[in-house]
């Protein structure tokens, strides 16, 4: 090690100990990289391999006998298409409702002249550390006749306290109190100020809110599990659970022969995972910075 010359490009000579240390760091990080990446590649590869290759365990890294039979079957299965449509509906409308409500509470709470802001903030944050529990909440949703309706997935968990904290911190930092006062003197009402000044100035935080709520809504299954009974309302995640985790693929491929069906049902699981995760993972590299921003804005005043 010591005999080796330091690379010519680096002006600062690193000691042998430091170089050894960095070699260890690079090795560990490479192992971590592979450990995270491998299962993801394996699943995608399996989803586009032939049914026989998947069931006989011949797929190790790359696809074997490429075929799109899994996806073909998926898109011919009514339950999955319904689930997909439902998930898109819940994600679109749920996100809209959630973001609107979050801004509606976070902005007034960011104004220093808004009397009662601390009391309301206490009311909001206390729900983070204490809750009535599963059954009492269920009873409320039931008494409002929301059980087994689409509203059950849009309303009872519409506002996340964490998002309120993030949005409020952002408004406090980026909408100066003087600006609001100046607008007030010019005769601009609070509502108009929100619409024509606050919202246009808050695009970065709106992006954070939209993305976090949308991913949360797309990935959620718990509310659907407890509040929904009719299969035609199920989001994709619940359909997924029934097919993969409960291994219930009957009714999906009734026309097929036994062996073929068994092989295909394995393949279908991989294809389903890909289809359910793809929308999120495709946009992820472009939106990662918004998530990081969201985390950091919140942690300043968490």
């Amino acid at each position: 090690m010591q005999a080796q010359a330091a690379p010519k490009r680096t002006s600062i000579r690193e000691s042998a100990g430091d170089r050894l240390f960095m070699a260890v760091v690079y090795t560990i990080l490479t192992i971590v990289l592979i450990a995270v990446l491998y299962p993801l590649i394996y699943i995608v590869s399996s989803s586009i391999s032939s049914p026989a290759a998947v069931t006989s365990g011949r797929v190790f890294l790359w696809p074997v006998d490429i075929s799109f039979k899994g996806f073909e079957t998926l898109f011919n299965t009514p339950a999955i298409l319904t689930g997909y449509g439902n998930s898109i509906f819940y994600t679109a409308f749920g996100t809209l409702i959630s973001v609107a409500l979050t801004v509606m509470i976070a902005y007034p709470l960011s104004r220093k002249t808004f009397f009662g802001r601390n009391a309301i903030m206490m009311i909001v944050t206390f729900t983070m550390i204490f809750s009535g529990g599963l059954i009492p909440t269920y009873m409320v949703v039931k008494s409002l006749h929301l059980i087994d309706t689409r509203w059950a997935l849009l309303i009872p968990n519409a506002i996340w306290v964490w998002q309120v904290i993030i949005a409020r911190t952002f408004f406090q930092a980026s909408i100066p109190e003087e600006l609001a006062e100046a607008a007030e003197i010019d005769g601009c009402s609070d509502l108009r100020f929100m619409r024509s000044v606050v919202i246009p100035l808050s695009k970065p935080i709106l992006a954070v809110l939209v993305l976090m709520y949308a991913v949360g809504q797309w990935n959620a299954y718990f509310d659907a599990l407890i509040y929904l009974k009719s299969a035609n309302l199920f989001p994709l995640q619940l359909v997924l659970r029934s097919i993969i985790i409960q291994n219930n693929s009957s009714g999906m491929m009734d026309a097929m022969k036994m062996v073929e069906r068994q092989q295909l049902s394995e393949l279908l699981k991989y294809a389903l995972i890909v289809v359910a995760t793809l929308p999120v993972l495709i946009i992820y590299p472009f939106v990662q910075r918004y998530f990081v921003q969201g985390m950091l804005v919140g942690s300043v005043k968490g």
């Binding site: 991913v215 997924l240 993972l281």
Partner: peptide, 11 residues
Amino acid sequence: TFAPYFISTVV
């Protein structure tokens, strides 16, 4: 390493 965070619990 950040990517798996976006995978849903069911998946």
